[in-house]
Amino acid sequence: MNAILYYRSSLSAEALKLKNTFSLWLAILAPCALVSMYVIVFWSKGEHFVPADANAWHRFAQQNFGIYTLLLMPIFIALLTSLTNGIEHKANGWKHLYTTPLPKSTIYIAKATTVVGLVLLSTVVFILAFLAGGWFLNLVRPELGFGSTAGLGLVFITSLKLFLATFVIIAVQFWLSMRWSSFALSMGAGVVAIITVVVGMRWEHMHYYPFAYPFFTIYTFPSGPNTATIFTQEVLLSLGVGLLVFLLGYFDISRKRIA
């Protein structure tokens, strides 16, 4: 009972801390920016992306997912976590947090929830922006086929899967940015993630590599065998390994001396 009370106080404080911050805006604006770029692309050159028999929503989603998983997401999550934890580093806030009458574990879980929540928020914003983009494309290019809503369910499921598949990346970046105040470290890890995934894409064991989970989640979209299953191997691995990293991160952080 107490634990829930502690958690609620801590989480509501964390939520207020995000007010007027760039990380909150980033979570909202990044998916909008991505979708609007593809809106422009489909508006001007839609006919190249949607062949006669293809589902327009799926093709639109495929483009967005591709760029998102390969290039944007590792950087995006690195930015989001290091900005969020950077609030604390910048304010010299750790000593203050740990002298509040809250268990260290509560503080850690509340912070982790905030970061995971921000990624979830951006996933929701992505879906909304995606729908708005498709609706707009239907106005300006009705012949592309955005008028029918068939197949949208698959896009929602895949977005959810993508979010779950990033869990492990959030966990790693969260630990890095909590442990060290360096922004460059988080970004560096993000860039390394991109390069290793791009280089190792065809390696047969690549689907075990945590930074590649999101990529393998959308790899076969929209026609692969597991596209409609939520808990695929990548998603389960991401949740399992992510939870492990969050736990190990906690043991590391809780032992750290606050100087």
């Binding site: 009370l5 509501s12 207020l16 801390k17 609030i87 304010a91 000593k95 203050h96 947090l97 009458p101």
Partner: peptide, 25 residues
């Protein structure tokens, strides 16, 4: 209060207090 206070500079004085108030209930 340990040396420099922990203030979240992007927030008002009131919001800083409100945040701490939530933590200490």
């Amino acid at each position: 209060l340990i040396e420099m206070p922990t203030l979240y500079r992007h927030l008002s004085g009131y919001d800083n207090l409100e945040m701490h108030r939530r933590m200490v209930r």
